[in-house]
């Protein structure tokens, strides 16, 4: 541990009288204990990560068959796959991104370009941050009251809109941050040439911050691809294939939830397969957005 690259941690040892005093020793012991605790805490945290990933891997891989992607969710006792659930998740996440991204980018633009230091901007940022960490179940109930109850039945479009409310704050936050990273000189250069502000934003700032904004969208996608609670009250589930947005639609998280809670072994293994696919997708999206973001950081 005590190589030269570490910060100067302990006073140079030697025959200085203080080195052997009780106080010095007590401080050293305390320090060693604290360091051990911190290292142990990190190992403790990583231990759970490893355990959870291992479980998902061990249970998910054997259940991963080709029929998973070609067959519908089965009734109890018969074979099947998760095709309709994958399709449903794909459709609803896609619509959620399509709704949430433009609104989020626009709102982030307002915060960064028009309200960077204003009171209204601070308030919107504050509310957005709360939305960002608000329990997703609350979003589900909100959309239930807003759409499902007036429509009289669960529907895929309600599920997509519920998810878009989870996409929104993520995109707002990253767009705001990424646009603020763009150097002011760039704006000034464009404005000095007489370019109107909306063109500056669209043709200069968005281009400069593109990878950052994309990171936000990917993060949002990672978040909604495993999101269960809001779909439970909006899209619910559907055992059959459907592409109608006004009908209940199957989706991976709710299928995982229902199958895992069921008493059937085969449903359990399907749930694990779904969990494995979702986890891998989320980790992949996380890695991609991380590398995009790091690239962005290095540039600026």
């Amino acid at each position: 541990m005590n190589d030269a690259s570490l910060p100067i941690d302990s006073p140079p040892r030697g025959d200085h009288p203080r080195d052997t005093s009780a106080l010095w020793r007590r401080r050293q012991v305390k320090n060693a204990l604290a360091k051990t605790f911190a290292t142990g805490a990190t190992l403790f945290g990583l231990f759970w990560l490893a355990w959870i990933l291992w479980t998902t891997l061990v249970n998910g891989l054997p259940a991963l068959k080709w029929t998973l992607f070609t067959q519908m969710t089965p009734p109890p006792g018969s074979d099947g796959g998760l095709l309709n659930a994958f399709a449903g998740s794909f459709i609803m996440s896609g619509i959620a991104i399509l709704i949430g991204t433009p609104i989020g980018v626009a709102a982030g633009t307002y915060l960064s370009e028009y309200a960077r230091h204003s009171r209204l901007g601070a308030m919107i940022r504050f509310v957005n941050d709360i939305l960002l960490s608000a329990p997703s179940i609350v979003i589900g109930l909100f959309i239930y009251e807003l759409l499902v109850r007036p429509m009289g039945h669960f529907s895929a479009i309600a599920g997509a809109i519920a998810l878009s409310f989870i996409v929104l704050p993520v995109v707002v936050r990253t767009t705001d941050e990424m646009l603020q990273l763009v150097p002011t000189t760039m704006r000034e250069a464009a404005l000095a040439l007489g370019v109107p502000q909306w063109k500056v934003v669209r043709q200069v700032l968005y281009r400069a911050a593109l990878s950052g904004i994309l990171t936000g969208v990917l993060l949002a996608l990672a978040r909604i691809s495993g999101e269960t609670a809001p779909l439970l009250f909006t899209a619910l589930n559907n055992q059959y294939w459907t592409l109608h947005l006004s009908e209940p639609m199957a989706n991976v998280p709710v299928v995982i939830f229902q199958y895992a809670m069921s008493p059937y072994k085969f449903w359990h293994s399907l749930a694990w397969a779904g969990a494995f696919v979702v986890t891998m997708l989320v980790l992949l999206l996380g890695l991609i957005s991380r590398s995009l973001f790091l690239g962005k950081r290095k540039e600026s």
């Binding site: 355990w51 959870i52 479980t55 998902t56 990672a222 978040r223 691809s225 495993g226 999101e227 269960t228 998280p253 995982i256 939830f257 895992a260 749930a271 694990w272 969990a275 979702v278 986890t279 989320v282 980790l283 996380g286």
Partner: peptide, 10 residues
């Protein structure tokens, strides 16, 4: 980043 449903199943 791991979805909460995975924690639940585990």
């Amino acid at each position: 980043g791991i979805p909460s449903i995975i924690y639940g199943m585990w």
